[in-house]
Design a protein around this nucleic acid. Structure first.
Lengths: 164, 164
DNA sequence: GCGCAATCGTTGCGTCTGCAACTATTCTAG
DNA sequence: CTAGAATAGTTGCAGACGCAACGATTGCGC
């Protein structure tokens, strides 16, 4: 092993940032699952429902791209949600290969309740961490910088990539 | 990137922060898997190897608590890593129920290579997002605030909780 | 119009993960 | 010392997910 050079601790390495983000995610995720379990929803199902609420009548492929899930995963999530009467596949008038997925009234109702509980839980945790509006804003701005960069990065990479 | 959308919002809601964190995580995770696949490692295996490198001779239960995995999951990850000769279970002199898991030379060697590639990939993405050291430091400080709060929150919750 | 590539969604299969139940060992109360 | 609780780790089982292969439909080039 070559010399153990340890740089002065002033500089923040990307790895440190990364580890923090990962650790934070794992903890938030853990909390999410606890909340959503009360509504018989997995995190993935919840994400799909929210997505469908924001944009009505999406195709499965669109969902898979937006949520970074394999197409087959979306098929199965929609299968489940449909069997529980929360969403419905409807014909796509323009393309007979495709489905348009919409929320049913029951789906909207459940989403409303689940979201309310989920957001309350999120609120508690994040508000507890940042007591000042200023801190939250700073944090939000930096997160958005990173987010937008990654989106751009991903889009660039997509040119030579293929989804399953 | 088309039109630089500036949110009219004055107040930052916790949900916005949360969505950003989630989206960022999904993208980072996606990139990770791509890199680690070249070393035949899942992200979980990689995390376990790193953890074992930092603290030698850990118990399975300790790993499961540190990494927020179920005990059974750790058992299987160690099984795999051991069958590939990357780690080894050794007897715990003080407790005959427990194992002490250590990296083998092959495990250390693979970890070194995988980490090098992984960290380079992380570096590219995060350095690309924040060009100034100042931005990184600010971001790091805020992430740490949130991280520490969540750790504390989790610890408090643990009192009445049980792991599988 | 015709044939071939691309795209939409589904299915088979393997892997990863958590939960619950279990054995073996250690700890604790009396 | 002993009985029962607690803890370390494993295993059975089921759910969630990705990848590859597939049929159906659409779009493109000629």
């Amino acid at each position: 092993m070559p010399g153990n050079y340890r740089p002065p601790k002033t500089a923040v390495t990307p790895q440190q940032l990364y580890r923090l983000i990962h650790a934070i995610y794992v903890m938030l995720d853990d909390g999410d699952r606890r909340v959503l379990r009360e509504f018989n929803l997995t995190l993935s199902q919840y994400r799909v429902l929210r997505r469908l609420d924001r944009e009505k009548g999406q195709r499965l492929t669109t969902l898979s791209r937006r949520l970074l899930f394999a197409k087959s995963t979306i098929t199965r999530i929609i299968d489940q949600l449909e069997s529980e009467g929360l969403v419905q596949r409807t014909l796509d008038a323009e393309d007979r290969r495709a489905w348009r997925v919409v929320l049913t009234p029951a789906g909207e109702e459940l989403l409303t309740r689940a979201r309310e509980a989920h957001e309350r839980a999120v609120q508690e945790r994040l508000n507890g961490a940042f007591d000042s509006e200023e801190g939250r804003e700073q944090f939000s701005a930096l997160l958005r910088t990173l987010h937008d960069y990654l989106v751009e990065d991903l889009r660039a990479r997509k040119s030579n990539h293929r989804t399953g």
